[in-house]
Amino acid sequence: MSVANRPSNRPLSPHLQVYRLPLTANLSILHRATGVALAVGALYLATWVIYAASGPRGYAVFQSFNSSILGRIVLGGWLFSLFFHLCNGIRHLFWDAGYGFELKDASRNSWIVVIVALVATAVSWIVGLRLV
């Protein structure tokens, strides 16, 4: 048996297509994705006040998009992105201060971030739809 074919017990580096990423890694990717989404969302927020200043007709056009199915999906995604990026951002600030790096802690507070973000989004939607 040649050297190249000899079975090896040496660890392989994780390959993205076969390796199941841990929750912490997925949340890291999601933090960046929601950050980019919120950057676009901030422009949308600016557009909202610009339309509000422009007059009732312009604002009606803007609102008709918001109350459409696509608009609702965009706003829902925007709110989830906001809550997730907020919760995970607070976790990042704790990391910056040197806390929460232990694997067990990082894993546990990953779940806290996900649950708080989902609950905040759900509560916002329930309250919002009751008011409409």
């Binding site: 927020l45 600016a46 610009i50 509000a52």
Partner: peptide, 10 residues
């Protein structure tokens, strides 16, 4: 651009 426009609008 968007920031300044939003501030003027507000």
């Amino acid at each position: 651009l968007f920031g300044l426009s939003a501030i003027v609008a507000i």
